Computed example of a mutant assay.
Amino acid sequence: MQLKLFAMSKVKYIRVSTTEQNTGRQEVNANQFSKIYIDKTSGSVQFTERKEASKLISDIEAGAISEIHIASIDRLGRNIIDILTMVEYFNKRSINLFVENIGMFSLVDNKPNPSFKMIVSVLGNVAEMERINMLERQRQGIELAKAKGTYKGRLYGTRMSDEDLLNKYKAVVRELKSGQSLRRAAKLGGCSLGTAQKIQRLISL
């Protein structure tokens, strides 16, 4: 579906975590939009670093979009800072963001909606906590598997290059560069504290 530049269109942004996930549920109202952007990537990946989200931003800068719909606020990210940063970006460009599961617009009469910001802040914090809890459960599962002798990690003797490490843990790189602690960066990025320390050494070179 082609988006006509400078037409000031209503679009939808969809994100699912893996290529195997079905986007059908988020596309039920697809015929209401001039264009749909679909990313299949983790919510921990910064919005501006996603392929389709980057195209959406380019269309915003070209003056082609007036309204964006998303199914839920965690489609923008799992980090409250990233979520609020994107909401502020949309507000400054008078882009009205509509979050379907709360039925609310970010702008009212072209001014920031204070109720929207309050609710989004709460939901964003919940999304972030859910991710931290998920990573903690994952860590506990690994520890349990190790104790049982059933854990299968990276093969002995294999080594990831520095470039591959930074690419794999972009979220950790982002958190550390923004001044977050090693422990927080490791939790949000889904890696061990030792890996976060190595990443910090690499980005400090």
Rank of each mutant, 00 (worst) to 15 (best):
K35W: 01
K35N: 01
K35T: 04
K40A: 13
T41V: 15
G43L: 04
G43I: 02
Q46K: 10
T48V: 11
E49H: 03
R50H: 07
E52D: 09
E52Q: 15
A53K: 02
S58A: 15
S58C: 06
S58V: 07
D59K: 02
A62N: 14
G63I: 06
A64M: 01
A64F: 05
A64H: 09
I65K: 05
S66F: 04
E67S: 11
E67I: 05
I68L: 14
I73L: 08
R75T: 06
R75K: 13
L76R: 00
R78M: 09
R78Q: 05
D82W: 01
D82T: 12
D82Y: 03
I83H: 08
L84D: 10
V87G: 08
V87W: 04
V87F: 04
Y89W: 10
Y89G: 04
F90R: 02
F90E: 07
F90C: 08
K92V: 03
K92Y: 13
K92Q: 15
N96C: 13
N96M: 05
L97V: 05
L97P: 14
L97I: 08
V99R: 03
V99E: 05
V99L: 09
N101E: 11
I102K: 10
G103A: 03
G103R: 06
M104T: 11
M104Y: 03
F105P: 14
S106Q: 09
S106T: 08
V108E: 11
P112Q: 10
N113R: 00
N113D: 11
N113E: 05
N113G: 07
F116V: 06
F116I: 07
K117T: 07
M118Q: 07
I119C: 02
I119W: 08
V120A: 15
L123P: 02
N125V: 09
V126H: 08
N133F: 14
L135I: 08
R137E: 10
Q138K: 12
R139I: 07
R139M: 04
G141W: 11
E143Y: 07
A145Y: 01
A145V: 00
A147F: 09
A147Y: 10
Y151R: 00
R154D: 10
R154W: 06
L155S: 12
L155H: 02
L155C: 00
G157Q: 07
M160N: 13
S161G: 14
D162K: 15
D162H: 09
L165K: 11
L166D: 06
L166P: 00
N167V: 00
K168P: 01
K168D: 04
V173D: 03
R174S: 03
R174W: 10
